[in-house]
């Protein structure tokens, strides 16, 4: 089938099998490799992307279901080549990652959380990333990263 997907603000027309997940469409159709496959059955959250600004699992969405919605991947929240957003920079500052495989999904889960909740508590941060598994970090430095990002974003929004 022919699909029109809006990915990171750009409309793309893809020729895909009906059975193609959004995850596979992004990786193999659009060629954006920053979205990673972890379990392909909706548990690990590694494949998290934003759909209309909300964190969702791209393995649990058919590409066709995403037509008409805005899809944002990790490449879409990166300001430019070599540049990092405040959230991304905060993950680097606290070393909120190790192998980097779950990281794009974690960053997007954090972006979605902080958009709705600029000053989350630790429990709220934990809840927001509870659907994103990380096997390296034990989550400690990820929680620190998101708290730091919240603090920085609040300051950056203060005149």
């Amino acid at each position: 089938m022919k699909l029109a997907l809006n990915v990171n603000g750009t409309d793309r027309v893809l020729e895909l099998e009906d059975r193609t997940s959004l995850l596979d469409a992004l990786r193999d159709g659009v060629g954006l490799k920053g979205t990673h496959a972890g379990c392909e059955h909706g548990v690990c959250g590694t494949c998290t992307v934003l759909l209309d600004g909300e964190a969702v699992r791209s393995c649990l969405i058919l590409a066709a279901q995403a037509e008409g919605h805005a899809v944002t991947t990790i490449e879409g929240v990166t300001p430019g080549p070599g540049e990092l957003s405040i959230v991304q920079d905060s993950f680097v500052e606290t070393h909120g990652m190790q192998c980097g495989y779950c990281t794009p999904g974690m960053v997007l889960a954090a972006v979605a959380l902080l958009r709705d909740n600029p000053a989350p508590t630790r429990d709220e941060i934990v809840e927001a990333i509870s659907g994103n598994l990380c096997r390296c970090t034990g989550y400690g430095q990820i929680v620190e990263a998101i708290a730091l990002a919240a603090e920085r974003l609040q300051r950056s929004n203060t005149p």
Partner: peptide, 14 residues
């Protein structure tokens, strides 16, 4: 010190 690998990972550039 920042971990140099993190810069690419956090941007989906691994």
């Amino acid at each position: 010190r920042r971990v140099r690998e993190d810069r690419r990972f956090v941007a989906g550039g691994g």
